[in-house]
Each structure stands twice: as structure tokens, then as C-alpha cells.
Design a protein around this nucleic acid. Structure first.
Lengths: 159, 159
DNA sequence: TAAATACTTGACAGAAACAGTCGGTTATTA
DNA sequence: TAATAACCGACTGTTTCTGTCAAGTATTTA
């Protein structure tokens, strides 16, 4: 359950590839395709979305390719996925585009909201830079349960 | 993104309804259908799965219906969803049924694993009982980012 | 035993989302 | 101008989702 579509997965991997070349010129779609084993045609779709969102920029012509609009430290996994798959919305009730008919009577509303917030916090706390750095912070997050600078939890009712 | 299917959503709501009647006899499918606005036919599918998993029991004949196999304190949202939608598996790489070809070369593997662990921890920490109790703990979890007894994060690596 | 109640099961089907391809276009550089 | 590389929209087969339906089994009450 709670699967991520391939667009989101490939998108993050493509961004990782572009981030690797940060500071040393554009990275071509062909390069990304070869490194990450994703077809060029499919990558075009994905990178187009990210470009329109302003997360990456493109350079046409020979020697061209894609570059990050910002430093890898300032690009979160959350915003990448947000562009490619829309906001976290465990239920359609919580999807900003749809809306809920009977919020009050729905006992599970708060539950899904809490889960969604939890996920969002994780994704927004995780930076592209973290992927570049041998996954140390990522591994730590797996144990801690949070990707925030300091544990978000554990302030109230702690211990 | 990361949507839950209606089966999972309805399943939890059905379980909530059954939990409400805990200690005071079986709850009929008809009752659940009316309270939660889900068709009987669809609920049958859902409750069947949960019964086979041993989470609920059914009582046939007049006056029959469904009852919890255990106390609401001992049934987690995680296990309900697990039966209805399978395990949390952000990517098919992390799905126990599929498996990953090139774990090592996949830079994002750890990232998705961390997210999945995070979600699992949340769902396994949330009990049916919590839903019954006016959602106080659920609301708290929304702020804390964890459903554990105490904040899972911020507890340092060591035990 | 018959009727009523209620669960049990498998098959089926329309709709939506997913995953990916294809053909052609535009801009830049050498 | 020729090569390179991004840009764009339409299209399509497959899978998953979201249910419905029909027929059956088990149990209790009168």
C-alpha cells in the first residue's frame, strides 16, 4: 500500500543525477537515461514538469542539458514529488482539489491528516544534498522516524 | 500522492463501527453500511478479509453480526491496513513479494525504506482504541509526528 | 421443519490511473 | 547548414480500483 508512482521515483533519481553535476555544467537527458535506466521519452515528460515548476533549468543546443535552479541543500524531496504527483493526500477528503463533504462526522479524518502531515514533514525535511552524501542522514532518519534537523517529536509528553 | 484505496479507508471505518459495539454483542453489516455510508456488498468483501485474518469474528443467524477478536487497545490501524492493502511498499523494490534487482546501485533505496519505516511505525502505533477516544491521541500525533507511546524521534540511537 | 437473518464466495465490468511510446518541433552551437 | 539537444502533445495498452451481482451456506426462532 501507499505506493509511489514510477514518475515520482524516476523523478527523484533524475534530480539526483542532475545534482551530481551541480557546478560543472548541464547534464543531458541521455546521460540520465543511461545512468538511471529510464527511457529518454519518459524522462522528457518528467523533466518538463520539473522545469515548468522552476526546480531545474534547461539549456538547449549542443553542450546543453539540465541544471539545478538552486543549491542541492535547498531542494527537498518533498517539492520534487509534489510537482510530479501532487500533494500528499491519503484520502481524497484531504486532497485540496477535492474537499470533504462531512469532515465532522468522519472519525478517521484526523487520523489520515496526522499520517499525511507526518509524511509531508519527512519529505520536506529530506534534501537532495542528503542523497549526495552517501545516505547517512537518510539512514539515520530510518531509525529516528524524522528527517527534521532535530526530532520534531519528543517535545511534549516525552518519556 | 500516496493515496490509500477505499478498501483501506472503509475497512478502518468498519472496524471503528464494530469497535463501538465491543462488549455489547455483534454489529451487523447492515448497521455498518448505514452508519458509514458504504454498500453492503462492498463491505462483505472487506470484512471477509479481516475475518480470515482473524482480526474479527462473525456470528451467524438472527442477532448475529461481527465482533472484534481482541480488545480495541490491542488492534492497530497498521494491521487492518496490512490485511486489506498489503504491506507498506513505497516502491516495488521494497515490496516483499517483488524484490529489488540492484539494491546497491540504487541511491534512493534507503530513502524510500526510511519513509516506509516511518509510516509503518505510525500505523502500528495507532490503535483502534485511539479512534474511539475522541481522537485526542490522533490529534497529538499530527503535531508530534509519531503515534508511539513517546516520541520515537529525538531519542538518540542508543537504547 | 420452514422462514428469517446474516454471513460467504467467486465472477464480472465499467472507470480511472499508470507507464510508457511516438512523431514532430524549436533553439543553439560549430 | 548540419548536428545536437531540449520541447510538446497525443495516443495506447495494461493494470488497478471500485464496486455490483447472483447464488450459496450456516444458524436461530417459531
Amino acid at each position: 500500500m501507499l505506493k509511489l508512482s514510477t514518475k515520482g521515483q524516476y523523478g527523484v533519481r533524475a534530480m539526483y543525477e542532475i545534482a551530481k553535476g551541480f557546478g560543472s555544467g548541464p547534464v543531458t537527458i541521455k546521460r540520465i537515461s543511461e545512468e538511471q535506466h529510464v527511457s529518454i521519452a519518459y524522462l522528457e515528460q518528467i523533466l518538463n514538469k520539473l522545469r515548468r515548476a522552476g526546480i531545474i533549468k534547461s539549456v538547449k543546443g549542443p553542450g546543453g542539458g539540465y541544471i539545478l535552479s538552486r543549491d542541492p541543500k535547498q531542494i527537498t524531496i518533498g517539492e520534487i514529488l509534489n510537482e510530479l504527483e501532487g500533494p500528499v493526500a491519503i484520502t481524497s477528503c484531504l486532497d485540496p482539489k477535492e474537499g470533504c463533504v462531512r469532515v465532522d462526522s468522519c472519525v478517521t479524518h484526523l487520523l489520515w491528516k496526522a499520517l499525511g502531515d507526518n509524511i509531508k514533514r519527512f519529505l520536506d525535511g529530506m534534501k537532495l544534498q542528503d542523497l549526495l552524501q552517501g545516505d547517512q542522514r537518510v539512514a539515520a532518519a530510518s531509525k529516528n522516524g524524522s528527517a527534521g534537523k532535530r526530532g520534531v517529536a519528543g517535545q511534549r509528553e516525552g518519556r
